[in-house]
Design a protein around this nucleic acid. Structure first.
Lengths: 233, 233
DNA sequence: GCCCCTTAGGTTGCACACAATCGCCCAGGG
DNA sequence: CCCTGGGCGATTGTGTGCAACCTAAGGGGC
């Protein structure tokens, strides 16, 4: 995470955050002129930023028709979860012997914060759950310290999906998900890589199941579930 | 592989081929003006192409200092092989039930061609082995038909390494490698996904062992093995 | 003789201008 | 009423110019 020195790098970072935070819905149009004005630069660095984000898979670019926030079909989402199921348990396993006590503390704090804002009740705040979850998983990846796996995972994650998923969780699924985070910390403290790997695998399977259920609901309620131009509302 | 309609897309394709074929050595300077003249376009599409290839990991860009063909340390290479070890056996396994008889025929032809040009003797031609090998693995990925895994793999493969590797193979290792291709075709024809997966895993372990041996030789012979500016001739 | 500073050359980063392409709207005909 | 064709606005793709930056070489000082 080096300091961005060029306008294009700043634009990449800003746009990535905007997309990852879900501020722009999937399928939203990304006009070059509009973004250039919003970021206070000319169209050139914006174009470069969009190209790079397209290579990352966060935006779709069609020649002469502009850029949009990437959208995915259910089949593609299933593929992404299969990939995560290969990579994240392995990364978690690698993280166990490398984690320092400070790492474990930080992860535990995150897991507990997620529990507080995630538990049904007056303090429930699913939106603030999303960044906490992302921080938790990113920290785990950082600890694993494996650039190749981390890069492959980053190219697959597409956090807008994760954000949508948190709102799709029902009570039991959310409780399982939050419990997984705590259990991973416990396994980490115990130095049991196999334990941590297994919980992470379960964690992803749980998320996949939620995603598939949400997709089913959507397809039965909405006759055009894959419409990329706009949301029904 | 859709038809490129813009100059930038053509530039991406051309540059990717140039780098993947090894025509430009790792660490070679990629001047914008030079490439623009070579491709017959202005610097703008060249810049866009370099950005996209940088996102793919094929070139390194440093602000105000230009682009170079990407280089990798031994640690990074080990990471890449670990990633391949997760992805390619899985992809191979997925390919088995999807392969048609024509797919198997095509793979078998490729495997036999590699055997002919790879066997020690008057016809040995390691350079023509490289594109055949790439075609074989790409075909397998195509059959598996799993976009997410394929994308993650493509971001990791860095074929210049593979090219270097073929010249580093000694007789037994090369024979093993060529035999693996044939055995994968056999397993594919038998419909045995577990067999194919295992052979592919062995295939990658073999390649990794060759790479590590070559790196050891290089580090004992050359006091500056990671010099990015040029090769020792 | 060695080191540092200055200066010159070349390359990249960005902005702007023009040309090409696409989608939309409306008029006209069947 | 629906379909087809042409014009128009908007947006993207590409070329070019200028400013900023880095690298390297030469001269002066210690």
């Amino acid at each position: 995470m080096s300091e961005p020195v060029t306008s294009a790098e700043r634009a990449v970072g800003t746009l990535r955050e905007v997309i990852l935070s879900g501020e722009l819905p999937a399928g939203a149009r990304l006009g070059e002129a509009e973004l250039a004005e919003r970021l206070g630069v000319s169209r050139t660095p914006v174009r470069e930023a969009l190209s790079r984000l397209a290579a990352e898979g966060l935006v779709d670019i069609v020649a002469n028709r502009g850029a949009r926030v990437a959208t995915w079909t259910v089949e593609e989402l299933e593929g992404v979860f299969e990939l995560r199921l290969l990579l994240e348990p392995q990364l978690t396993s690698l993280a166990v012997p490398r984690a320092t006590p400070e790492d474990a503390d930080a992860l535990e704090v995150l897991a507990h914060q997620m529990f507080e804002v995630g538990c049904p009740g007056p303090h429930q705040d699913l939106d603030s759950l999303v960044p906490l979850n992302r921080t938790f998983h990113e920290r785990l990846v950082t600890i694993a310290d494996h650039a190749a796996l981390a890069g492959a995972l980053a190219s697959a994650i597409h956090p807008p999906i994760v954000a949508r998923n948190f709102h799709a969780y029902d009570g039991p699924a959310l409780r399982r998900s939050l419990g997984h985070h705590l259990e991973i910390v416990t396994a980490l403290r115990a130095g049991d890589a196999e334990w941590a790997r297994s919980v992470m695998a379960a964690h992803i399977c749980n998320a996949r199941a939620v995603m598939l259920q949400a997709a089913r609901d959507e397809s039965t309620a909405d006759p055009t579930p894959a419409d990329p131009t706009g949301r029904p509302s």
